[in-house]
């Protein structure tokens, strides 16, 4: 994490959006009710995307998340480099599906093709969208309620000396989101691909770009017995003719230790509930169907800057 070198400019909405941690936690209860846009939000030039008809998933694709896949064909985050073996992926792996691993962890795989999308668009979007609640809400209005950055993370995102591809490395997105099992506050700590455990020599040859890290999720209406659940999230993108191929993997029940190693942290004998794994799998199909549909258009309008 770089030192804070950017001076906040409170004349700009990207800086004015800053809330304290305690205020954001309190606000998340309201956000989870999906309130109408405020007059200030209505005036934002990208507000029109909030009112668009949302593209629905291909029914055949969505149906692949109806039943769990064979756990013998899934794997843990220790084998993340399997995502760099394209021939094996295409010939042998289950690319769309979910299950519980034998150790109880939740596993999700998904694959999307985005015509006309480039790696630069991905890098811009993942840096641009956490700056305001509305930017996150327009991604998938039915289930994306809000987002917040800490002051130091906001300064990094808005630091013009940090390349878009690297802006999120070490940054936490505090999102309020419904992954088909009710609204949760999810703190997603983004990491570089090297910190995810990728073999970087191979990564540079195979992958176009990446976004991922580790999240902690807990119900917005947290009570004393609420479970705070970890998950490792991986979105990896590959250049293909005509666009970008996107592979997603989630490992629910896993976290990264301070040394950066993935560790299962489920109590012995406990599994991530199947409903939560399937819920996130279905949510992922829906939000990234929308993503591929609107990213080229919004990038064309706003992709030149973090500000608008």
């Amino acid at each position: 994490m770089t030192e804070q070198t950017v001076i906040p400019d409170l004349s700009k909405p990207e800086w004015r959006a800053q809330k304290t941690y305690s205020q954001n936690l309190a606000d998340s209860v309201i956000k989870a009710m999906l309130p109408p846009l405020t007059p200030e939000e209505e005036a934002r030039p990208f507000a029109k995307y909030y009112y668009e008809d949302i593209k629905q998933p291909d029914p055949a694709h969505y149906a692949l998340m109806d039943e769990p896949m064979d756990p013998a064909r899934a794997y843990g985050p220790e084998e993340i480099n399997r995502l760099l073996d394209l021939e094996y992926l295409e010939k042998h792996e289950v690319e769309i599906g979910w299950c519980n691993l034998p150790n109880g962890a939740g596993y999700i795989a998904n694959k999307n093709f985005y015509p006309g999308v480039t790696a630069d668009m991905i890098d811009w979007w993942f840096a641009w969208h956490p700056l305001e609640d509305l930017r996150y809400r327009i991604w998938y209005p039915p289930q994306h309620a809000g987002i917040m950055l800490s002051p130091l993370d906001r300064a990094r995102i808005l630091d013009p000396s940090v390349p878009n591809r690297e802006k999120n490395w070490g940054v936490v997105h505090n999102v309020t989101e419904n992954c088909d099992c009710g609204f949760e506050n999810i703190d997603i700590a983004f990491r570089s691909p090297a910190d995810m455990g990728f073999d970087m020599e191979k990564f540079e040859r195979v992958a176009a770009t990446f976004a991922g890290g580790m999240g902690w999720a807990v119900a917005v209406n947290k009570c004393d017995d609420s479970i705070t659940a970890p998950a490792i999230m991986c979105h990896i993108f590959y250049d293909v003719p005509g666009g970008l191929l996107h592979r997603t993997r989630f490992w629910m029940g896993y976290r990264f230790t301070v040394e950066g190693k993935p560790e299962l942290c489920l109590p012995p004998g406990v599994s991530v509930p199947a409903a939560n794994v399937q819920g996130l799998a279905r949510h992922n199909v829906k939000e990234f169907t929308r993503f591929g549909d609107f990213l080229p258009r919004i990038y064309k309008e706003f992709g030149h800057s973090m500000y608008c």
Binding site: T20, Y21, S22, Q23, S150, L152, D153, V172
Partner: peptide, 12 residues
């Protein structure tokens, strides 16, 4: 401090 984000707390 409750208003400080945990990630910023450790950095600061």
């Amino acid at each position: 401090k409750p208003e400080v984000f945990p990630q910023d707390f450790h950095r600061l």
